[in-house]
Simulated assay, not measured.
Amino acid sequence: MKTSTDELLVFVTVIDSGSITAAAEKLGQTVSGVSRALTRLERKLDTALVRRTTRRLHLTEEGDAFLGRARAILDALEEAEESVARGRERPSGRLRVDAASPFMLHCVAPHMTAFSALYPEIRLELTSNERIVDLLEHKVDIAIRIGALQDSTLHARALGSSRLRVLASPAYLAEHGEPATLDALHAHRLIGFTAPEHLNRWPLREGGRGKRRSKSDGKNGGKTREDAAARLKIEPSITASSGETLRQLALSGWGIACLADFMTAADVHDKRLVPILANLHVDERQPVNAVYYQSAPLTGRVQCFLDFIAARVRL
């Protein structure tokens, strides 16, 4: 479109005000600036819209026909802007949120009744992927990711961090005994992840080694360099792709697992799962972030979800 909305606004304001001088005052512009904008518009349209005299302005036939179209365009633009403003004040539309199934089950789903009560016009779509998804490819508005972030093109809202612990059920320990050393641990049934492989390195170190802590290395997601080196590689007796499956196996007494506090805190509190090897444990925490693309101000529904979940999730 050759014509700008600023030129349309000048044209309509000149006609409504009755003069270029009055239009300039109303628009907060100079008289010469308004005159140039009107001349520029006529040049683009290759026709005269207004006949100017020393006392009055008169619309030409073409100007009269164009005036109605110009008003319609400006009204439509104003309505569109008001619609966006209403959307920020009263968010609506579809919002797709993705998270690994354990986080979705334990930290997102329990709060969605309250979220929907606050924002009834938002249509939630909750998806769970155990692997990292491409937000654009899967049309995801917000993804909650656990661990160090790799994609520098994403913006992130930190939700906290969650500690990893080695756990077993009282029933399993009653039947198989509690391991006191790393060698004893290897003799037990260990529950691990199918992939990625680094999830089968547990935050355990041999007693008396690695007690001095070095400065934090950001590339390790908040872990110290010594702690990263001290992680114990385990050989799982059974594997699963979802942390929730590992939790259910541990609860059923199948074996020993390494799981995050965000999904097991209630189990530990109620003694359904028991932390073991505490004297060999590295205090390792996984950062939790809500990530999203941001090339412009956030839509109201994305912003309100980020604010809501950050206030509700206690990590």
Rank of each mutant, 00 (worst) to 15 (best):
A65M: 08
K44A: 07
V50N: 07
E82Q: 02
L57F: 02
K44P: 12
A72G: 11
R40K: 03
G68K: 05
E81H: 03
L45M: 12
L49R: 00
T54K: 02
R56D: 15
L77S: 07
R86I: 06
G63V: 09
A65P: 09
R55G: 06
A65N: 10
L49T: 12
E78V: 12
D46K: 13
D64W: 15
F66M: 06
R52S: 10
R51N: 09
D46M: 08
L41K: 10
L45K: 05
G87Y: 01
T47A: 05
T53V: 10
A76N: 07
E78A: 03
L57D: 14
T60M: 01
A85L: 10
R69V: 12
E62W: 09
H58Y: 09
R69P: 13
E78N: 01
T54Q: 04
E42G: 05
A85E: 15
V50T: 06
E79T: 14
A48W: 15
E62N: 06
L74S: 02
A72Y: 06
D46H: 09
D75P: 10
E82M: 02
L59S: 07
L45R: 08
R71H: 11
D64Q: 15
E42N: 10
I73F: 03
R71Q: 09
G68L: 11
R71A: 06
L77E: 09
E79A: 09
A72K: 00
K44S: 05
E62L: 08
L59P: 12
D75N: 01
A48L: 15
E42I: 06
L57M: 03
E62M: 05
E82A: 04
D75I: 14
R52F: 13
G68Q: 13
T47N: 02
G63T: 08
L77C: 00
R40I: 10
A48N: 14
A80H: 04
D64S: 13
L74W: 07
E79S: 03
V84L: 03
R71I: 07
A80F: 00
R55K: 09
V50R: 02
A76Y: 05
R86G: 03
S83N: 05
I73D: 11
R51Q: 10
T54Y: 07
D64I: 14
A72V: 09
T60F: 09
R43G: 03
R69Y: 14
R52I: 15
E78H: 07
G87D: 08
L59F: 03
T53N: 01
R71T: 11
G87F: 00
D64M: 15
H58A: 02
T54P: 00
T60N: 01
G63K: 01
T60H: 10
R86A: 04
T60Y: 05
D75T: 11
L57Y: 04
A70R: 04
A70E: 08
D64H: 11
G68C: 04
E79V: 12
